[in-house]
Design a protein around this nucleic acid. Structure first.
Length: 283
DNA sequence: AGATGTACCCGGACGC
DNA sequence: TGCGTCCGGGTACATC
């Protein structure tokens, strides 16, 4: 195995990373049929390993859908595979036995042309579910940030009356789906608002900046392939292109790219928070 | 309603 | 180098 592994923190896949994976999976496994299944860690799946294999082998994946940070594989029997990578989960598609990452693989789906590896599934999982079960599971997910129906007016209405802090609202999957700890901070920085501001204190101009910052940050990051530490395939040069592009996240003490002030690292609701005390408005 | 706490999980980082 | 310890994230759920 010849993959170069960069020395970086474990990544927490969010909207841009999962969107990149959705596109990659569509390119490599949509329309393909599953030849064999290997389960190295039974806890990663929700049914008995033998049953999981029986159900999956021979199935064709019709298409790949992303909802928030979840990926749904639509199978030809009407069932779904629901994937969540949680902390540190990764996907890799290798063309042959030598082309596999030097990591602990929990589940492998083998296709005629290659192998899809599910790596680093600790809290993450790959569940075989009926449509009904999936819908019940994801019923409370908020809208996708790019949902056409989420106009500026609807966005403002969704936040209306909420008394939580900006950071907590951004990472709340009931409010919007797909934003996690890193991009919440990047969005707050881009909007010029401190993460601990109560939503009730945001004025019209700030809400509008926030709305546009959400789209700008997520779109930019996804266009650059997100910040995953490993490429999806051996010659994939997109995935992970956003590595080290974060402006405030994990940059505590470093100078702000806009003004040079030291980035502040703090904590809210047991989450790391990073912001520029000069560029981001306190009130 | 929102905040807080806890369980889940284990690779990797760190300490001796 | 080896072995033990501990951390950290998103989600779900209980509780205040």
């Amino acid at each position: 195995m010849l993959l170069e592994i960069r020395e970086e923190d474990e990544r927490m896949p969010e909207w841009p990373e999962m969107e990149t994976y959705r596109a990659m999976l569509t390119k490599y496994v949509a329309g393909k049929s599953i030849r064999s299944v290997e389960i190295a860690r039974e806890k990663s799946v929700n049914v008995d390993a033998e049953q999981f294999k029986r159900e999956l082998e021979g199935r064709t994946i019709w298409f790949i859908e992303r909802r928030g940070k979840y990926i749904l594989f639509h199978l030809d029997n009407g069932k779904r595979l629901l994937l969540h990578l949680m902390l540190g989960g990764l996907l890799y598609y290798g063309s042959d036995e030598q082309d596999r990452p030097d990591r602990t693989v929990q589940v492998t789906l083998t296709f005629e042309q290659g192998h899809l590896y599910f790596i680093g599934l600790r809290l993450g999982f790959l569940h075989y579910l009926s449509v009904k079960e999936v819908e019940a599971r994801l019923a409370e997910l908020g809208p996708d940030p790019f949902d056409k129906r989420l106009t500026l007016e609807n966005f403002k209405a969704r936040l209306q009356g909420k008394r939580s802090a900006l950071k907590n609202a951004l990472v709340d999957q009931h409010v919007l789906s797909g934003i996690g700890n890193c991009y919440a901070d990047e969005i707050a920085f881009t909007a010029g608002i401190r993460p601990d501001r109560k939503l009730t204190t945001l004025d019209e101009a700030e809400l509008e900046r926030l709305y546009h910052a959400i789209h700008k940050v997520l779109r930019d990051a996804a266009d650059k392939g997100g910040y995953m530490e490993l490429p999806f395939t051996r010659d994939d040069e997109l995935t992970g292109g956003y590595n080290s592009q974060c402006l405030v996240y994990d940059r505590g003490g470093e100078p702000c790219v806009q003004c040079g002030t030291a980035i502040v690292k703090t904590e809210m609701s047991s989450r790391k928070v990073f912001y520029c005390p000069n560029c981001q408005k306190e009130s």
